[in-house]
Structures are given as structure tokens and as C-alpha cells.
Nucleic acid binder design. Structure first.
Ligand SMILES: [Zn+2]
Ligand SMILES: [Zn+2]
Ligand SMILES: [Zn+2]
Ligand SMILES: [Zn+2]
Lengths: 133, 133
DNA sequence: TTACATACTGTTATATTATAACAATTCTAA
DNA sequence: TTAGAATTGTTATAATATAACAGTATGTAA
């Protein structure tokens, strides 16, 4: 069997799937990923979902919840901060990860009245991008 | 056929499904809703999803994207503002709609560097609620 | 009233997204 | 080198959501 690619902490399947997502200009869905990696020997949904779960867990990719799709992280500190924000065009469906220190700090320090302490948040903005409006 | 319940703007199926969600202490999933309204003559997924779509559209309920589940709106202005925020306990899964004017204003006036103007946002906070920590 | 448009309903089938379960292999660290 | 942890491969199935089409109810305006 091929050696695992531990020099960068990703296993073989994780690396294949990360590379695909990272190269993609748009969010990729799990089954789109599956179709695109079958030539690399990844044949079944669980193989894809397991790699996706791990990549999300370590902050290399994020799930766009409203689209059931995945994008590569464009920031350096998502793994640590667990603070994600995206802008989503409702027309062309372009998604951008927002990296705004003030926004991130504001939300990370937000305290709920009911005494809940937050560990993580996900924010999705919707509108029309420059091109589409 | 029964008269539509237009006195409050909801159709028969919409009213049945809204009442169920509104009474529920926790977010409800579409198929849980389906099982619970079959005695009222709603038999198939499209009937549920159509009512859910409409109720979301008019702001009577919200979808918790990370859970594929629906809650009744607890605010008065969600229909207008299209600004939703939730706190979600990762242990007991309790979900609360956050109604914080400052937060809502801050996010509603947030402008993306790339020139996108937002019409709507959804924010989900995760952590441990008072009871669970 | 009639006729039309719009919204809603009922139904069957199917598409899409995600996980359970289990056996085998590979990696890591002691 | 060996045991535990992580990863992989595989089959089957669960859970979530929509397509398509025919029919019914409602509001509006001639
Ligand atoms: Zn990121
Ligand atoms: Zn666009
Ligand atoms: Zn609301
Ligand atoms: Zn809790």
C-alpha cells in the first residue's frame, strides 16, 4: 500500500479530496467530489464523508451549511478560532470566506444573555455579488 | 373541502405544520413533522416541504441549517429583517433564537470588502448551555 | 356570474445527502 | 515488535429533499 502522506498530516484520501476542493473555484458537494476522485480509487460515499469530516475537524475545509457543500479554508486561524463567516451570492452562487478581524472578534466575544458560552460560530451572509447586481 | 384559514394568512397545511413546530420545545425535522401530521391527512414529503418552504419564506419559522431542522420564530421582526441568529448546545441540542438588537444591527450593516451588499444573514453559535457545562 | 390567474393540495416516483456496520490495512509510539 | 489508534475498503441502507403532474380552492376583475 502507498505510504501515508504524514509529512503534511493528511492521509492519502484526505489529501486527494483536499486537493480537489482547494483547486475548485466553487464549493463542492460530496457526491461531486466522489465522481471526481473515482479515478483515484475512492469508490464509495463513506470514504468521501470520512475524509470531509476529518478535514472539517482540523479546519482545512469548511462546510457551507446552507448549500451542503465544502470549500477550502482561506484563512490561517480557522483551526484555532473556530470562527467562520461566508458571503454567498444568491444569483451566481459564488462563495467567499470572509476574513475580518473586527467581525471575528466581535462575534467571538459575544455572550448570550442566557449564560451560554460559545466555542464556535458559523455565519452565512446572502446577497448579490458585484457581478450580479 | 375545508375553508382555507386566510384570517391569519396560513393555508390549512401550513397552519397544521406551523402549530406543531410552534408547540415543540425543540427543532423539528421534516420527517418527524411528517410522522406527526399524518393523522391530520398530510401523507407525503412534498406536502411538508412545501409548507416549510412557505413558512420560512414568510418568516414564521426558521431552518437551523446545521441540523436540518425547523423552529418557530420567537421574534417579531424576522420577516422584515431577514436576520437570524441562534445558539445551539452541542450536548443537549437545545436551540434558542437570539434576539439582540445590537448584534442584529451590527451584522445588518456589515459590508463586505469585495463590494457585496447583503440582504440576509444566518448566524449559528455553538457551545454548552448553562445546564450542560 | 363567469372566467382567469394564482396559490395550494394530493400523489407517485425518484434524486440527493449521509451513515451503519464490519473486515482489513497502515501508522504510531512505546 | 507489538498493541492501540487511525485509516481504508465495501455493501447496504437511512435520512433529507425534489420532480412532475393532475386536481382543487381562492381572489380578482370583467
Ligand atoms: Zn477558514
Ligand atoms: Zn453573483
Ligand atoms: Zn425569528
Ligand atoms: Zn445543553
Amino acid at each position: 500500500m502507498t505510504r501515508m502522506h504524514k509529512e503534511n498530516n493528511l492521509s492519502k484520501n484526505q489529501q486527494i479530496i483536499f486537493d480537489l476542493i482547494d483547486k475548485s473555484p466553487e464549493p463542492l458537494k460530496a457526491y461531486t467530489i466522489l465522481y471526481n476522485v473515482q479515478k483515484k480509487g475512492i469508490n464509495a460515499p463513506p470514504q468521501v464523508y470520512r475524509a470531509l469530516d476529518k478535514l472539517v475537524e482540523i479546519g482545512k475545509i469548511h462546510k457551507i451549511e446552507s448549500k451542503n457543500a465544502f470549500v477550502a479554508c482561506k484563512n490561517s486561524d480557522c483551526e484555532i478560532s473556530k470562527a467562520t463567516a461566508f458571503s454567498i451570492c444568491e444569483s451566481c452562487e459564488v462563495v467567499d470566506e470572509i476574513s475580518d478581524v473586527k467581525l471575528s472578534k466581535y462575534l467571538s466575544s459575544f455572550n448570550h444573555k442566557k449564560g451560554m458560552k460559545f466555542k464556535r460560530f458559523n455565519l452565512e451572509f446572502f446577497g448579490l455579488c458585484k457581478k450580479c447586481k
